[in-house]
Protein backbone atom coordinates (compact mmCIF):
# COMPACT_ATOMS: atom_id res chain seq x y z
CA UNK A 1 0.00 0.00 0.00
CA UNK A 2 1.34 3.39 -0.94
CA UNK A 3 1.08 6.54 1.13
CA UNK A 4 -0.40 9.32 -0.86
CA UNK A 5 -3.33 11.70 -0.73
CA UNK A 6 -6.38 9.92 -1.98
CA UNK A 7 -9.78 10.98 -3.13
CA UNK A 8 -11.24 7.60 -2.19
CA UNK A 9 -12.06 6.45 1.28
CA UNK A 10 -9.00 4.86 2.82
CA UNK A 11 -11.16 3.45 5.57
CA UNK A 12 -13.20 1.46 3.08
CA UNK A 13 -10.07 -0.04 1.54
CA UNK A 14 -8.46 -0.95 4.85
CA UNK A 15 -11.72 -2.50 6.00
CA UNK A 16 -11.85 -4.46 2.77
CA UNK A 17 -8.30 -5.74 3.23
CA UNK A 18 -8.92 -6.86 6.78
CA UNK A 19 -11.88 -9.08 5.93
CA UNK A 20 -9.63 -11.28 3.79
CA UNK A 21 -8.02 -13.87 5.99
CA UNK A 22 -6.60 -16.34 3.51
CA UNK A 23 -4.67 -16.10 0.27
CA UNK A 24 -7.10 -16.36 -2.57
CA UNK A 25 -7.12 -19.12 -5.11
CA UNK A 26 -6.61 -16.51 -7.83
CA UNK A 27 -3.26 -16.70 -9.57
CA UNK A 28 -0.55 -15.09 -7.44
CA UNK A 29 2.33 -13.35 -9.14
CA UNK A 30 5.17 -13.31 -6.60
CA UNK A 31 7.41 -11.10 -8.72
CA UNK A 32 4.78 -8.41 -9.04
CA UNK A 33 5.25 -5.82 -6.35
CA UNK A 34 7.94 -4.62 -4.00
CA UNK A 35 6.71 -5.64 -0.51
CA UNK A 36 8.52 -2.66 1.02
CA UNK A 37 5.54 -0.56 -0.07
CA UNK A 38 2.83 -3.10 0.81
CA UNK A 39 0.18 -2.84 3.48
CA UNK A 40 1.66 -4.91 6.34
CA UNK A 41 -1.77 -6.53 6.85
CA UNK A 42 -1.93 -7.89 3.31
CA UNK A 43 -2.95 -11.55 3.52
CA UNK A 44 -0.19 -13.84 2.29
CA UNK A 45 2.47 -11.13 2.44
CA UNK A 46 4.81 -13.05 4.74
CA UNK A 47 4.54 -16.14 2.56
CA UNK A 48 5.71 -14.11 -0.44
CA UNK A 49 2.29 -14.51 -2.07
CA UNK A 50 0.28 -11.36 -1.37
CA UNK A 51 -3.39 -12.06 -1.95
CA UNK A 52 -3.83 -11.50 -5.68
CA UNK A 53 -7.51 -10.57 -5.48
CA UNK A 54 -7.09 -7.87 -2.86
CA UNK A 55 -6.54 -4.29 -3.93
CA UNK A 56 -3.86 -1.98 -2.62
CA UNK A 57 -4.16 1.80 -2.80
CA UNK A 58 -2.38 1.94 -6.17
CA UNK A 59 -5.07 -0.34 -7.61
CA UNK A 60 -7.78 1.94 -6.22
CA UNK A 61 -6.19 5.13 -7.53
CA UNK A 62 -5.59 3.47 -10.88
CA UNK A 63 -9.13 2.15 -11.25
CA UNK A 64 -10.77 5.44 -10.30
CA UNK A 65 -8.54 7.61 -12.41
CA UNK A 66 -8.58 5.39 -15.46
CA UNK A 67 -12.36 4.97 -15.25
CA UNK A 68 -12.84 8.74 -15.09
CA UNK A 69 -10.62 9.28 -18.14
CA UNK A 70 -12.11 6.41 -20.09
CA UNK A 71 -15.66 7.65 -19.43
CA UNK A 72 -14.62 11.03 -20.80
CA UNK A 73 -13.23 9.35 -23.93
CA UNK A 74 -16.70 8.00 -24.70
CA UNK A 75 -18.64 11.20 -23.94
CA UNK A 76 -16.25 13.52 -25.73
CA UNK A 77 -15.85 10.96 -28.53
CA UNK A 78 -19.61 11.07 -29.19
CA UNK A 79 -19.46 14.84 -29.42
CA UNK A 80 -16.48 14.62 -31.81
CA UNK A 81 -18.23 12.06 -34.01
CA UNK A 82 -21.16 14.51 -34.44
CA UNK A 83 -19.13 17.68 -34.68
CA UNK A 84 -16.01 16.83 -36.69
CA UNK A 85 -16.02 17.41 -40.42
CA UNK A 86 -12.72 15.62 -40.99
CA UNK A 87 -13.13 11.96 -41.90
CA UNK A 88 -9.97 10.82 -40.06
CA UNK A 89 -11.02 12.60 -36.88
CA UNK A 90 -14.60 11.30 -36.80
CA UNK A 91 -13.39 7.73 -37.48
CA UNK A 92 -10.94 8.10 -34.60
CA UNK A 93 -13.75 9.42 -32.38
CA UNK A 94 -15.92 6.39 -33.24
CA UNK A 95 -12.98 4.11 -32.34
CA UNK A 96 -12.72 5.89 -29.00
CA UNK A 97 -16.43 5.47 -28.28
CA UNK A 98 -16.23 1.77 -29.13
CA UNK A 99 -12.86 0.86 -27.53
CA UNK A 100 -13.38 2.88 -24.37
CA UNK A 101 -16.97 1.68 -24.10
CA UNK A 102 -15.66 -1.88 -24.00
CA UNK A 103 -12.89 -0.88 -21.61
CA UNK A 104 -15.44 0.78 -19.33
CA UNK A 105 -17.46 -2.43 -19.10
CA UNK A 106 -14.34 -4.39 -18.18
CA UNK A 107 -13.33 -1.72 -15.66
CA UNK A 108 -16.80 -1.78 -14.11
CA UNK A 109 -16.76 -5.54 -13.69
CA UNK A 110 -13.19 -5.48 -12.30
CA UNK A 111 -14.19 -2.75 -9.89
CA UNK A 112 -17.16 -4.82 -8.73
CA UNK A 113 -14.97 -7.87 -7.98
CA UNK A 114 -12.39 -5.61 -6.34
CA UNK A 115 -15.16 -3.82 -4.39
CA UNK A 116 -14.02 -0.38 -5.54
CA UNK A 117 -16.62 2.21 -6.42
CA UNK A 118 -15.89 4.04 -9.64
CA UNK A 119 -16.75 7.69 -10.30
CA UNK A 120 -20.06 8.13 -12.10
CA UNK A 121 -19.49 11.71 -13.25
CA UNK A 122 -16.86 13.34 -15.40
CA UNK A 123 -14.14 15.17 -13.49
CA UNK A 124 -14.03 18.99 -13.63
CA UNK A 125 -11.17 19.02 -16.17
CA UNK A 126 -13.12 16.91 -18.64
CA UNK A 127 -16.35 18.83 -18.02
CA UNK A 128 -14.45 22.02 -18.84
CA UNK A 129 -12.92 20.41 -21.93
CA UNK A 130 -16.33 19.24 -23.15
CA UNK A 131 -17.86 22.67 -22.56
CA UNK A 132 -15.08 24.35 -24.50
CA UNK A 133 -15.32 21.83 -27.36
CA UNK A 134 -19.07 22.32 -27.64
CA UNK A 135 -18.45 25.97 -28.53
CA UNK A 136 -16.06 25.15 -31.38
CA UNK A 137 -16.42 23.86 -34.92
CA UNK A 138 -14.37 23.08 -38.02
CA UNK A 139 -10.59 22.82 -37.79
CA UNK A 140 -10.62 24.62 -34.46
CA UNK A 141 -12.75 21.83 -33.04
CA UNK A 142 -10.65 19.07 -34.60
CA UNK A 143 -7.41 20.48 -33.25
CA UNK A 144 -8.77 21.05 -29.77
CA UNK A 145 -10.25 17.54 -29.68
CA UNK A 146 -7.09 15.86 -30.95
CA UNK A 147 -4.89 17.85 -28.56
CA UNK A 148 -7.07 16.75 -25.67
CA UNK A 149 -6.88 13.16 -26.89
CA UNK A 150 -3.08 13.28 -27.01
CA UNK A 151 -2.89 14.58 -23.45
CA UNK A 152 -5.48 12.11 -22.16
CA UNK A 153 -3.80 9.13 -23.81
CA UNK A 154 -0.37 10.19 -22.56
CA UNK A 155 -1.84 10.15 -19.06
CA UNK A 156 -3.54 6.81 -19.65
CA UNK A 157 -0.33 5.18 -20.93
CA UNK A 158 1.54 6.30 -17.82
CA UNK A 159 -1.28 5.14 -15.53
CA UNK A 160 -1.28 1.69 -17.12
CA UNK A 161 2.51 1.43 -16.84
CA UNK A 162 2.28 2.58 -13.22
CA UNK A 163 -0.25 -0.11 -12.31
CA UNK A 164 1.95 -2.92 -13.69
CA UNK A 165 4.56 -2.65 -10.92
CA UNK A 166 2.56 -0.77 -8.26
CA UNK A 167 -0.71 -2.67 -8.19
CA UNK A 168 -1.51 -5.87 -6.36
CA UNK A 169 -4.87 -7.10 -7.69
CA UNK A 170 -3.89 -9.60 -10.38
CA UNK A 171 -6.98 -8.95 -12.50
CA UNK A 172 -6.43 -5.20 -12.46
CA UNK A 173 -2.72 -5.58 -13.23
CA UNK A 174 -3.54 -7.94 -16.09
CA UNK A 175 -6.07 -5.45 -17.43
CA UNK A 176 -3.36 -2.74 -17.35
CA UNK A 177 -0.83 -4.92 -19.17
CA UNK A 178 -3.36 -6.14 -21.73
CA UNK A 179 -4.62 -2.61 -22.44
CA UNK A 180 -1.23 -0.96 -22.89
CA UNK A 181 -0.64 -1.84 -26.59
CA UNK A 182 -4.13 -0.57 -27.54
CA UNK A 183 -3.82 2.68 -25.62
CA UNK A 184 -0.35 3.25 -27.06
CA UNK A 185 -1.82 2.70 -30.53
CA UNK A 186 -4.56 5.28 -29.75
CA UNK A 187 -1.87 7.78 -28.72
CA UNK A 188 0.09 7.16 -31.90
CA UNK A 189 -3.09 7.54 -33.94
CA UNK A 190 -3.96 10.85 -32.22
CA UNK A 191 -0.41 12.15 -32.80
CA UNK A 192 -0.62 11.26 -36.50
CA UNK A 193 -4.01 13.02 -36.75
CA UNK A 194 -2.47 16.12 -35.26
CA UNK A 195 0.34 16.00 -37.80
CA UNK A 196 -2.28 15.75 -40.58
CA UNK A 197 -4.28 18.66 -39.16
CA UNK A 198 -1.22 20.90 -38.96
CA UNK A 199 0.68 20.44 -42.22
CA UNK A 200 3.94 22.33 -42.34
CA UNK A 201 3.37 25.74 -43.87
CA UNK A 202 4.71 25.87 -47.38
CA UNK A 203 5.59 29.26 -48.81
CA UNK A 204 4.21 29.41 -52.35
CA UNK A 205 6.93 29.86 -54.96
CA UNK A 206 7.28 33.46 -56.17
CA UNK A 207 5.14 34.21 -59.22
CA UNK A 208 7.05 34.01 -62.48
CA UNK A 209 8.15 37.43 -63.66
CA UNK A 210 6.05 38.76 -66.49
Amino acid sequence: MRIRPLSCSIGVVIGLLSVHTAVSAAEADPAAANPTFANPDTPGLLAGKPAPDVVNLSDVVFLKQLAMGSRAEVEIGKLADQRSSTSGVDAFARDMVKDHGEANSKLASLARTAKVSLPTELGPAHVAARTELSRLSGTEFDLKYVDGQIKDHQQAVQLLIYEITSGQHSGVRKFAADSLPTVMAHLEHARSLRAQLTPPEVTPPPAASR
Binding site: S58, F62, Q65, P124, A125, Q155, Q158, Y162
Partner: peptide
Protein backbone atom coordinates in the same frame (compact mmCIF):
# COMPACT_ATOMS: atom_id res chain seq x y z
CA UNK B 1 -7.98 16.34 -11.14
CA UNK B 2 -6.26 14.32 -13.87
CA UNK B 3 -2.69 14.56 -12.53
CA UNK B 4 -0.90 11.25 -12.20
CA UNK B 5 -0.22 9.78 -8.74
CA UNK B 6 3.00 11.10 -7.14
CA UNK B 7 4.66 7.68 -6.98
CA UNK B 8 4.75 7.54 -10.77
Amino acid sequence: DAALPPDT
